[in-house]
Design a protein around this nucleic acid. Structure first.
Length: 428
RNA sequence: GUGGCCUUAGCUCAACCGGCAGAGCAUCGGAAUGUGGAUCCGAAGGUUAUGGGUUCGAAACCCAUAGGCCACCCCA
């Protein structure tokens, strides 16, 4: 027999970990509700063209990380697992005529994404994101609202010190000219450029600003900044975004070298980092305005903005701060028996309590009573229901494992007594 | 995709120069057949990631593969 294991870059979320993810998903759903984003689902895979066109052929996400599905037959369509949710959400928005809904259409998706890159801690081939999109609002107020919602997510998750890095990357009116300026600037220093960055000069000059090569630091520092060369409309938009952020009390750091990896972004761009870890490559989340994407995927020109927050990285960050990410619920009571062999009575009582909506575990292993109780306390159950000879006249022993007390209870009252106690029972 | 470090029981780790594969925790059982988190005793758990090679002898040395991690690339 071969030994099987989860594919590279994927992981099993075991119950302890899954509980932490569920908690984060709960916060995301709660925030979506509070901010007016409606939850939806999109397929885990799409026609590859949705990503190729939407995200951009030349981006790393499409060029090297797209998780393509081998076609089943020669004439079947080319599919790919979703590397992010925005393109799929916008595809659905166009497909279902949501342009007819009063704007903005605010949508939320939580689920796994797939990217075929080399795994590391916090970097997986299957990872979880919360994605929120406000489609049909040109901003700038909604830009600030989205950033604030992201920040609130981290705060409620238990990461109060998340830092916002903010930039404007211009739009079709001013970015092309800026790119030329940038190209000219770096071309003038071509001899100093590392090989990789020399190649970027043609393919993606914006990325030069992001280079971590020490030889580039001085060059980048004195390079022309997009933020200084925004057209009037973009500059006014950015100023207003900042005014709104200030009004909300959201602090942020201007990061003129912040660029985004996906082609569809324009104007507002931002990323979330742990305080003190801003320089690291692992963003907790990021987002921006993508005013051209709806049109790119076949809809009418429609402005939009959104973000994607990485749940895996939040869990990782919480673990690093030593915080308890989450705990699983423990049963209110465990049904144990004096006669190890009498699983019938234990199961019957458990079934009775469960039908009353109570969370109980029946000990079905034929172990002696001491061992049954031992396991019950180890799993943090509040009560043990001990079944013995008293059952003959309709009674059981109800033992409070936390308090160490015990008394005889008529079986008829058991559910009521436990339900009353549940109010004070802290699961876990 | 590039470079580097790592992989021994379910988990965390030992094993001196290449010479008997071990401990703690967890699990199961006994002390204690109707009373729990403590204690004592015991059991079970291993193709030393996988496949080759060197050697009288390999967990250890060499090669390949897989997986994990770190730095890039890039992002969540």
């Amino acid at each position: 027999m071969p030994t099987y294991r989860a594919p590279r870059g994927t992981r099993d979320l075991l119950p302890e970990t899954r509980a932490g993810f569920s908690r984060l998903e709960g916060i995301a759903r709660s925030l979506a509700l509070r901010y007016g984003y409606r939850e939806m689902e999109i397929p885990l895979f799409e026609q590859a063209a949705v990503f190729e066109r939407g995200i951009g052929e030349a981006t790393d996400v499409v060029e090297k990380e797209l998780f393509r599905i081998a076609p089943r037959t020669e004439d079947s369509e080319s599919w790919a697992l979703r590397p992010e949710a925005t393109a799929g959400i916008v595809r659905a928005y166009v497909q279902h005529g949501m342009q007819a809904l009063p704007p903005p259409v605010k949508l939320s998706v939580v689920g796994p994404m797939f990217r075929y890159d080399r795994p590391q801690a916090g970097r997986y081939r299957q990872f979880w994101q919360w994605s929120a999109e406000a489609i049909g609002d040109p901003g700038p107020a909604v830009d600030a609202e989205v950033v604030e919602m992201g920040l609130r997510f981290y705060k409620e998750a238990g990461l109060p010190d998340v830092q916002v890095l903010l930039n404007s990357i211009g739009d079709a009116a001013c970015r092309p000219a800026y790119l030329e300026t940038l190209k000219t600037y770096f071309s003038g220093h071509e001899a100093q450029l590392p090989a990789l960055d020399r190649r970027r000069l043609d393919t993606n000059p914006l990325r030069l600003l992001d280079s971590k090569d020490p030889a580039m630091t001085a060059l980048i520092a004195s390079a022309p900044k997009m933020i200084d060369r925004l057209c009037e409309a973009c500059a006014a938009h950015f100023t207003s975004v900042r005014v709104h952020l200030d009004a909300l009390g959201v602090s942020y750091r201007l990061e003129p070298t912040l660029v985004r990896g996906l082609d569809y972004y324009a104007r507002t761009a931002y990323e979330f980092y742990r305080q003190g870890a801003e320089g690291q490559q692992q963003a907790l989340g990021g987002g921006g305005r993508y005013d051209g994407l709806v049109e790119l995927l076949g809809g009418r020109p429609t402005p939009a903005i959104g973000f994607a927050l990485g749940l895996d990285r939040v869990v990782l960050a919480l673990a690093e701060t030593g915080a308890t990410v989450s705990h699983e619920a423990s049963p209110l009571a465990v049904i144990v028996g004096a006669d190890p062999a009498d699983t019938v009575s234990r199961l019957r009582v458990a079934s009775l309590l469960r039908s009353e909506g109570l969370s109980v575990r029946a000990e079905l292993a034929p172990r002696k009573l001491g061992r049954q109780l031992e396991t019950a306390s180890k799993e943090q159950a509040h009560f043990a229901v001990i079944i013995g000879d008293e059952l003959a006249d309709g009674h059981v022993q109800l033992k409070d494992l936390k308090a160490g007390t015990q008394h005889l209870v008529p079986l008829a009252d058991l559910a009521r007594d436990l339900a009353r106690a549940e109010k004070t029972h802290h699961h876990g």
